[in-house]
Design a binder for these strands. Structure first.
Lengths: 144, 144
DNA sequence: CCCAATAATGATAACCATTACTGATTATAC
DNA sequence: GTATAATCAGTAATGGTTATCATTATTGGG
């Protein structure tokens, strides 16, 4: 069987992910890990992110467009994506399990979970909006 | 300014998408359109799908993994993805706008919309499961 | 009806994120 | 220590999508 071996690189990746809350991409993590391991390979970053995700120690986020993001917080929570600056925030609100039951009643199968992403404009970007009504970034083509 | 010109290929793509409800990928649409336009280019399919999505006539779906899917039904509705066979179903249930307000109260910004995908096992795949408890396909790494 | 203007096409190359491969390195068990 | 196997760095390959470009199709005026 496949026994997990310790690796400093994996530790560093996990550490990096726990210390930041901006839900970084593999590339961003790569840049960060490079400060400690200058010759780390991007492949190593991907390999370990996938390993950690498969072990359930981190979460993958597909925010609708752009590369995959990662989150060390595996507890059930929702995310908010600012369509103007692209940042991804955690939302401190209850995750409804009720809604899984409601959906299950409509689909005939079994529903185990759901994911939800909220889209809009973050407080910072709202503040930057010109009162004169300058146009903003396109909303993502997908919604609801 | 850029005035839209009519194109049979685009009509065919739109038609194809309206006639099927399996939320096909660009590649699947390509295969379908090829029956009417044997030398249609995959690039043409992508170009028109993006055009139609940007015009709001179709919807893009990012179901969490795998290539993008498309949906001619632009009305607000949720989707269910079977983790066993990969099919994507429409869910006939209310789309809550209430939840956007709840989320907005937590994020400080403005929330315009949300997307939700439900994950589980469809009725067909449930029926196929062996009573003896054979292992099934991996759940997608992302959930909440 | 034909013509000029220009949007759309087909073919293909480029792009980007991610994965697979390889031989060298490192961690663990004995 | 040594054997074994996981992990690594480096790099090539892959898959989905987008960009480029010369050619073709659509459309609104003469």
């Amino acid at each position: 069987m496949k026994t997990l071996k310790h690796s400093r690189q994996r530790d560093c990746i996990m550490n990096c992910l726990m210390n930041r809350h901006d839900h970084p991409t593999a590339d961003a993590i790569y840049a960060s890990v490079r400060q400690d391991f200058p010759n780390v390979s991007l492949g190593t970053v991907y390999r370990n992110l996938n390993l950690l995700a498969d072990l359930g120690e981190i979460r993958r986020l597909n925010c609708g467009s752009g590369p995959e993001r990662f989150d060390a917080d595996t507890s059930p929570h929702y995310h908010f994506i600012c369509q103007s600056c692209g940042q991804v925030q955690d939302l401190d609100m209850d995750v409804s399990e009720q809604i899984d039951l409601a959906a299950q009643a409509r689909c005939g199968g079994r529903i185990d979970s759901h994911i939800t992403y909220f889209y809009g404009t973050c407080a910072d970007c709202l503040a930057k909006e010109t009162p004169a009504g300058r146009t903003q970034a396109e909303p993502p083509a997908e919604a609801s």
